[in-house]
Nucleic acid binder design. Structure first.
Lengths: 151, 151
DNA sequence: AATATTTATATCGTGCGCGATGTTTTTAAA
DNA sequence: TTTAAAAACATCGCGCACGATATAAATATT
């Protein structure tokens, strides 16, 4: 078959793409009540681990560029979740810090991972099988991420 | 640790999301010369397998909704890749058919899968490890896809 | 010290994804 | 057969992603 490789079912990337979309969709029931999106949830995860980071560090952590992260942070600031203050030592930087609202949301979000796990367990039967994806995905990410010299 | 599960590194979905973004990025060098995007490439894959399908069938195949697929097809029609003609038996339908340009692009796209494989192999070392993802991703997709009664 | 380069962030434009909603046609029910 | 429900497609609005470009401040070079 000359075009065998061009069949949709032979495309790994399509599976990744679809699995990601569907998994993001599974977050909706838990994120909607908080009024945040999945990328915003990711920003919060980063800030909950370490508050007061420059935009660049957050972007690096999420492996996104500032042209994606900046508008994201602007929307989150408008929503009252965080503040973007000018850096003192380096005035080019914008230091992102959580507001009270952003901080307390951690408590409301605490159970999201286990809720999602339960949800997926119910639909898939096994969770362990999913965890086998992790090392391979990490290797793929590692391989495909250009080692851009961070900020 | 009370918030252990809220750590970014413990999030499978973040890995899926990142791996997908980076893999899509790896397609750019091959799709840019053709003037198409990855979702447009997916539509072509579907039509190359079976020409003249209603919008609904394409959407179902890609597991997307018509509100995503319709504008996608409109852009592709404007680009001269396909035509959207009214269905004869069911006039609600729009039958999507490839143009000469859309058909011949198959020849130009023929080597994309192997180019990408070679590319990833170079950066990851192994390809076999990636293929181990397939059954699990399929199970995840199967589990998360609401069995919406298709068109 | 003056100039060039890099870095940190922002802006703009385009193409998705997708929730919500609308229109027309088909099918099912009363 | 008239009416109700469902199906196929489209439109609208918003929030990403991301390429391209811009601006200002910090760093490196000459």
């Amino acid at each position: 078959m000359e075009y065998e490789q061009l069949k949709l079912n032979n495309q790994l990337c399509f599976r990744l793409y679809t699995a990601t979309r569907l998994t993001l969709g599974a977050y909706h029931p838990y994120l909607d009540p908080l009024g945040i999106t999945y990328p915003q949830y990711l920003v919060l995860l980063v800030l909950w681990e370490q508050d007061k980071q420059p935009v660049c560090d957050i972007a690096k952590r999420l492996m996104l560029d500032t042209n994606t992260v900046t508008p994201l942070l602007q929307r989150m600031e408008k929503a009252g979740l965080l503040l973007r203050t000018k850096g003192k030592t380096d005035t080019r930087q914008r230091i992102v810090s959580l507001t009270e609202k952003g901080l307390t949301m951690r408590e409301q979000a605490k159970h999201i991972p286990e809720c999602l796990s339960a949800n997926i367990l119910e639909k898939m039967g096994s969770l362990e099988e999913l965890t086998t994806l992790v090392p391979t995905l990490d290797k793929l990410i590692e391989g495909l991420s250009e080692r851009r010299i961070g900020c």
